[in-house]
């Protein structure tokens, strides 16, 4: 049985501000760590061991942490399912890895492109990492959009959820560039019995505005 799609839970990380928020509540905070150290600290403090984490680039680490905290805190991990989509939106793709890869091929005398780094230049790799971690065999999709845009998020949410193959979705905005790394991920479900607020452009905007204004 299906019902109107509801936001079950959401996680937010601003690595620059060193904060982690789950469902509006600040659950973790440090001070003065750079984004890489902060993300490692979050991983070590709040997440189960997954050594592959260290191999990921900043963009992917951010998405991975958002998904881990979201699935764990909501008690909705449901490993091995086919009807959960993963949709991620970002603006700058994986710029940090792009710059690293470009630098590694620019100089003939020092030409050592790293295959691992190249893989992370693909902005959809984060969806693959989350799927591999949880054995989600359903839809994965990655979009490029200029900013967090609740109207756009609602549209791409609809695009995935109209498909009867999908009953829940991890919907996310992840952006990392230079010294910033900020992202939000929602778990939204149309399965019966799930509690939460109905998804709407307004709700997606309200949540974001609250997070941004809560300094």
């Amino acid at each position: 049985m299906k019902q109107e799609s509801k936001i079950i839970s959401y996680t937010y990380i601003d690595a620059e501000r060193n904060i982690v928020v789950i469902n509006g509540e600040k659950v973790f905070e440090t001070e003065n760590l750079d984004i890489k150290d902060f993300l490692t600290k979050v991983y070590k403090t709040l997440c189960d061991s997954y050594p592959k984490f260290y191999k990921m680039d900043i963009h992917c680490k951010l998405g991975y942490l958002l998904s881990e905290l979201l699935l764990e805190s909501s008690g909705n991990r449901q490993k091995g399912i086919e009807d959960r989509a993963i949709a991620v939106v970002n603006s700058s793709s994986s710029l940090c890895s792009d710059i690293k890869h470009q630098a590694s091929i620019e100089d003939n005398g020092n030409y050592f492109p790293s295959p691992a780094n190249f893989v992370y230049t693909l902005s959809n790799i984060v969806t693959g990492e989350i799927a591999i971690r949880n054995k989600y065999y359903g839809e994965t999709i990655s979009y490029i959009h200029s900013s967090y845009d609740s109207k756009y998020l609602k549209e791409i949410f609809d695009l995935s959820m109209v498909d009867e193959c999908n009953n829940s979705i991890l919907l996310s905005w992840i952006e990392s560039i230079d010294t910033t790394a900020e992202g939000i991920m929602f778990l939204i479900s149309k399965e019966e019995g799930k509690e939460g607020v109905n998804v709407s452009e307004k709700e997606l905007d309200n949540i974001w505005q609250k997070l941004k204004n809560n300094k």
Binding site: E82, I86, V119, I125, T127, G128, E129, A131, I132, N134, K135, Y136, Y137, G138, E139, T140, I141
Partner: peptide, 20 residues
């Protein structure tokens, strides 16, 4: 559209993603 959920660059031996 389906996810192979196996490896970042390699496809699973059974081709589960393509099959699905």
């Amino acid at each position: 559209n389906a996810c192979d959920a196996y490896h970042q660059t390699a496809m699973s031996e059974d081709g589960n993603g393509p099959y699905a």
